[in-house]
Design a protein around this nucleic acid. Structure first.
Length: 274
DNA sequence: CCTATAGCCTGACGGC
DNA sequence: TGCCGTCAGGCTATAG
């Protein structure tokens, strides 16, 4: 679930539901999602609670697959939400509606709750003081949809790179926000085979790749990252064993690229060879 | 510097 | 039915 469009949709969701309400209490149901910095796990949980209870959420921002929620405390701090491969947010009132795998639960003083859901617990929840510092520590590249990340910056970022184009798109240090599913979607629309070495792409194809990337991510956000809402012409809806290309009807192929499954159309994705 | 790979964690699914 | 292997929309540490 959580690549850039998914996280952006969740950010908008949190923004629309959970701002400006006092956090009356919070529960951590599974400590695995709260990273231990230097002290003990126990201390980390205690600290997280102290930092959040009594505060409210003021505003939100996102960088790649990372979400940040500004708190109204006197330290200018931020709640960090990352989801790993599975997870999301849910705002609800009655505990009968409590979702499964809600690893952290925020109780607001209006009797509503916000659940941080993460089945596989590969994400993390913590509080930081400096977003730029976290981005630097994680080694994140520019956010894929940042207006400053233009064609020139993209060319600059992939210059001298020789890895397969899908790996580069998914490399968070090069571009932040694209994962396995959306890299497939982008390459499908750009007509590029996922195993093409990026240095073998023509100048013109590289340019097309860049604008396709922006376009696909933007469109996915407009559809709230819900594959069922996507146009039929998106490969994501057909991205499974035996699925067929929505344009030409050919059976989609699957190959491993950096130990992830890439799906592609053998007819339409040939640019750059193979 | 670069790229590729196993491991973290849990659940779903197919084959026997 | 149970057991086993594989896979899953991410990231990290490590090896080559």
């Amino acid at each position: 679930m959580p690549e850039l469009p998914d996280v952006e949709t969740m950010r908008q969701y949190l923004q629309a539901t959970s701002l400006h309400q006092k956090i009356a209490d919070m529960e951590v149901h599974d400590a695995d999602v709260v990273p231990v910095e230097d002290a003990s796990q126990e201390a980390a949980l205690q600290e997280l609670k102290e930092e959040l209870v009594g505060c409210s959420f003021n505003s939100t921002r996102r960088h790649g697959k990372w979400m940040f929620v500004a708190l109204d405390d006197d330290r200018d701090s931020f709640l960090v939400l990352h989801f790993g491969m599975t997870g999301g947010l849910r705002y609800f009132k009655n505990m009968e509606e409590e979702p499964e795998y809600d690893r952290v639960l925020f109780h607001f003083d209006n009797d509503y709750q916000l659940a941080y859901i993460s089945l596989r617990k590969l994400g993390e929840v913590k509080v930081i003081d400096d977003v730029e510092q976290l981005i630097a520590e994680k080694g994140l590249g520019p956010d894929a949809l940042d207006a400053d990340f233009d064609l020139a910056a993209f060319k600059d970022a992939v210059e001298d790179r020789r890895a397969m184009v899908k790996s580069i798109l998914m490399d968070q240090g090069t571009i932040a926000g694209i994962g396995n599913v959306y890299s497939d979607e982008i390459l499908f629309h750009a007509g590029i085979h996922p195993r093409t070495k990026i240095n073998n792409l023509e100048e013109e194809t590289l340019k097309e790749l860049f604008y396709t990337m922006k376009d696909v991510l933007q469109k996915a956000i407009e559809y709230q990252a819900e594959p069922e809402q996507f146009p039929e012409s998106f490969i994501t809806r057909h991205r499974h064993e035996g699925g067929r290309c929505p344009i030409c009807g050919a059976e989609l192929q699957r190959v491993k690229v950096s130990s992830r499954s890439a799906y592609y159309c053998p007819n339409r994705q040939r640019k750059g060879g193979r």
